Amino acid sequence: MPHISRDSLLSLEQYHRQRDTLRTEAIECKNQRRIYLGDHVTLAFENEVTLRYQIQEMLRIEKTFDDEGIEDELEAYNPLIPDGTNWKATMMIEYVDADERAQRLMELKGVENHLYVQIAGCDRIYAIADEDLERANETKTSAVHFVRFELDPGSINAVKAGQSIAMGIDHAAYNVRVDEISPEAQGSLTQDLA
Rank of each mutant, 00 (worst) to 15 (best):
D192Q: 13
A26V: 12
A89L: 05
P82T: 04
G154V: 08
I125A: 01
V111Y: 07
I125K: 01
D39M: 04
G154R: 14
Q163V: 09
D152L: 11
D20S: 15
G121Q: 10
K140W: 00
L43N: 10
Q32M: 10
I27S: 03
L37P: 07
A76I: 00
T90H: 11
Y36V: 09
V176M: 11
E184I: 00
A102S: 09
I81Q: 06
G162E: 11
A161M: 06
V159Y: 08
S182Q: 03
I4D: 08
V49F: 01
V147H: 07
Q186Y: 03
A129Y: 09
S11P: 12
E94R: 14
H114V: 01
K109N: 05
D130P: 07
D170N: 15
Y53N: 14
A136S: 15
L51S: 13
Q56M: 15
E71V: 11
A44S: 15
K30W: 05
Y77N: 10
M91P: 08
N78W: 09
T24P: 00
H16N: 13
R124N: 02
A136M: 00
E150Y: 02
Y126I: 02
E100W: 00
A166V: 05
E68H: 06
F65R: 03
E68K: 09
L59D: 12
M58Q: 14
Q191M: 05
S188L: 04
M106K: 11
D123E: 13
N175H: 11
I165F: 07
Q54M: 13
G38P: 12
A166F: 07
E75R: 13
G84V: 03
A136Y: 03
L115M: 05
L193M: 02
D132I: 02
Y77A: 04
H16I: 02
E25N: 12
R52K: 13
T50C: 13
L37K: 03
E134K: 06
R34A: 13
G84M: 03
M91C: 12
D83A: 07
E100K: 08
E48R: 15
H40N: 15
E13H: 14
V176C: 03
